[in-house]
Design a protein around this nucleic acid. Structure first.
Lengths: 226, 226
DNA sequence: CGTGGGATGTTGACATTGGCAACTTAGAGG
DNA sequence: CCTCTAAGTTGCCAATGTCAACATCCCACG
C-alpha cells in the first residue's frame, strides 16, 4: 500500500554510500569533530539509523572512507598546484602551500587523515590511505630530486638518506605548521599563506645549504606492513 | 550498618580529584584514545559513576585537567633538559629533544594537549594551558635570543619578527615530527631521538644562516583572548 | 516470463554512555 | 552538640553504536 505521490522516496536509495560520505564530510566540516553520531548522519541522509551499516561495518570504516575522500581531494589540489608551472622550486613551494591550505581549510578532516585515529594500536591503516600517502610522498620526492631545493639531487643510492631527510624536514615542518594553524596555536588563519611562505622559504634556504641525512634504519611515509 | 573490617573504604575518598586524574592518565596511556568512559574511570578509581561530577563539571573539564597535568610534566622535562648544561645551542637541542620525547612517549596525551580537542570552535582553552604554553614559548625564545641558533640575537623590537619566525620554525618542525612519529607515519619510534637530532640539526643550521621573519599581524603561541 | 535470492533499508531491541536529580554521609565550625 | 555543606551514592533519562529479524526491491537464471 501507500504508493501515494510520485515524490515518494523509493525504498532503495540508489547511491546511499556516496550520499553518506558526502553528508559526513559536511557534518565534519560543520562540527569539526569526529564525535558526530551515525544516527544524525542517517537522519541527514534521510534514511533509517541502521542503513549505513549496509555500507560500512562500523563507524571506523565510515571514517576511513571519509579520510580516503580527503586524501583524494588533497592529491588533486597538489596536482593542480604543480600544473601551475614554474621551476621545480616554485612547484615545490606551491605544493606545500596547497598542502597547508587543505589542512587549514578543514582541520578535523586533516586530523582524521593524519592523526592516529584510524591507525590506533590495534588497527592497521586502510589500504587506500597508504596508497594515497605514498603517492604524496613520491610527489615530494620527485620535486626535491628535480631541484626543488635549489639544485638537482641525483637519485642515486648514496643520496637516498638525504632525500629522505629532506622529505622528512619538509613534511614535518608543513605538518606541524598546518596543525598549529588549524588549532589556533599560531595565527591568524587568514595569514596562513604568508606564514607558510616565509617559513617554508626559510627552511628551503636552510635545506639547500645542507641536507640532514636520515639515520639508517628509519623510514618516512606509511610503512606497508605486508 | 556494615562497618566490618578496618580495610573498609570510607565513604569519603579523601583526594578523589587527584586519584581521578591519575587514573585517567593511566587509561589514556593504555588506550591511547580520548574515548574512554567516565564510568570506566570511576570504576577504576573505586567510586560510583557519578562521583567524578563532584570534581569536574563534565568530561571536557576532566580532559582539560589531564591536559594541564601533561603540560606540567612537559615543562618539568624541558626544564631538566636545560639543567643539563652546555651552551645555548646544546640546551636548545636538549629542550627540543625533550619535547619530542614527551610527545612520542604518550601520543594521545600530546594530541589532547596540542590538538584542537579542547579549543573547539565554541570553547576557549583553559587558562592553565595558556599559561603553560606561554611559559614553553618564552623558554624557547630565551634560548634563541641567548644564541641557540649559533649567534646571539639581541632582543630588540627590530628583531622580534625574526625571533618569532625562528620560534615558529622550531615549533612547527618539532610539532610535526612529534606527531608523525607518534602516528607511525615516520619511524621507527625507537629512533625518534636520532631522527629528531638530525632533523633539528639541519634546521638549526638553516636558521642560523638566515631567520625567516614572521609576516606582520601574525602571532605565535596561544592567543590570550581577553 | 516468473521466481528466488542477494543486496539494500527498516524496525525493534540492548548495553553503554554522559549527565541530571534527589538522597546519604561525615567531618568541620559555630 | 548540632547543623551546614562538600563529597559520594543510587536511580533515572535520552542518545548512541551495534546486533538481529524482518521488508522490499531488482537482477540473473530457469
Amino acid at each position: 500500500m501507500a504508493q501515494t505521490n510520485p515524490h515518494e522516496r523509493p525504498y532503495h536509495h540508489g547511491d546511499l554510500r556516496r550520499a553518506i560520505v558526502k553528508a559526513a564530510l559536511e557534518i565534519l566540516h560543520e562540527t569539526q569533530s569526529l564525535e558526530f553520531s551515525l544516527r544524525e548522519l542517517a537522519r541527514r541522509a534521510g534514511v533509517s539509523h541502521n542503513a549505513p551499516y549496509k555500507h560500512f561495518a562500523d563507524k571506523r570504516e565510515l571514517l576511513a572512507a571519509i579520510s580516503a575522500a580527503g586524501f583524494e581531494t588533497l592529491a588533486k589540489r597538489m596536482a593542480r598546484a604543480i600544473m601551475g608551472g614554474g621551476n621545480a622550486r616554485e612547484q615545490l613551494f606551491a605544493v606545500l602551500r596547497a598542502y597547508v591550505d587543505h589542512g587549514v581549510g578543514n582541520p578535523a578532516l586533516y586530523r582524521l587523515m593524519f592523526g592516529g585515529y584510524l591507525s590506533g594500536p590495534n588497527h592497521s591503516r586502510p589500504a587506500i590511505e597508504l596508497a594515497e600517502a605514498n603517492k604524496t610522498k613520491a610527489l615530494l620526492a620527485d620535486l626535491i630530486v628535480a631541484g626543488g631545493l635549489g639544485r638537482a639531487i641525483p637519485d642515486i643510492p648514496r643520496n637516498r638518506p638525504k632525500i629522505a631527510g629532506a622529505i622528512l624536514a619538509c613534511w614535518s615542518l608543513v605538518h606541524g605548521l598546518t596543525l598549529l594553524l588549524a588549532d589556533g596555536l599560531v595565527g591568524p588563519r587568514k595569514k596562513s599563506g604568508a606564514m607558510g611562505d616565509s617559513l617554508v622559504q626559510g627552511m628551503l634556504d636552510g635545506l639547500a645549504a645542507d641536507l640532514p641525512a636520515l639515520p639508517p634504519g628509519t623510514w618516512v611515509g606509511p610503512q606497508v606492513s605486508l
